[in-house]
Write a protein that binds this DNA or RNA. Structure first.
Length: 99
DNA sequence: CGTAGGGCGAAGC
DNA sequence: TGCTTCGCCCTAC
C-alpha cells in the first residue's frame, strides 16, 4: 500500500474538533521524519473533499499551510470547535488527536 | 533513472 | 523568543 493511502486512512480517523500534526501523522504511518512527505501528499491530495486535510497542523500548534489558503483552514477549524489565536490553536494539545 | 521540491521539524544563532 | 539553516523522506517531473 502506498504511503499516501496510509496517510489518508489515518487522517480519516481524526474526529471533528480534533487535530493532528504532520509529524505525528507521519509516525502513524511508520515514517520517522516524513513530515514533509505528509505535507506534500496533502497538497497533492486527490480526495480534497473526503480527506479533512485542514485537521493537520504543525507540531507547535500553528495552522501551517493549506492548498486552498490558510485562512480557509483556520475558519474551518474554528467552525469545528477549535479556538484559534492569530495563527495558532489555543488549546491545541487538548484537542490533539493521538492514534 | 536522477533531480528538485514540499501545507515540516528540530537545532542553532 | 523569533528567525534562519540544514536535514529528512517521498512523490512528481
Amino acid at each position: 500500500m502506498k504511503i499516501e493511502e496510509k496517510i489518508y486512512r489515518k487522517l480519516l480517523e481524526v474526529p471533528s474538533g480534533h487535530v493532528t500534526t504532520y509529524g505525528d501523522l507521519a509516525k502513524a504511518v511508520n515514517l520517522k521524519n516524513g513530515q514533509r512527505v505528509v505535507g506534500q501528499i496533502m497538497k497533492k491530495n486527490p480526495f480534497p473533499v473526503i480527506v479533512p486535510c485542514h485537521r493537520v497542523v504543525k507540531s507547535d500548534g500553528t495552522i501551517g499551510g493549506y492548498a486552498y489558503g490558510s485562512e480557509r483552514k483556520k475558519h474551518m477549524l474554528s467552525k469545528e470547535g477549535l479556538k484559534i489565536n492569530n495563527d495558532k490553536i489555543s488549546d491545541f494539545k487538548k484537542n490533539l488527536f493521538r492514534f
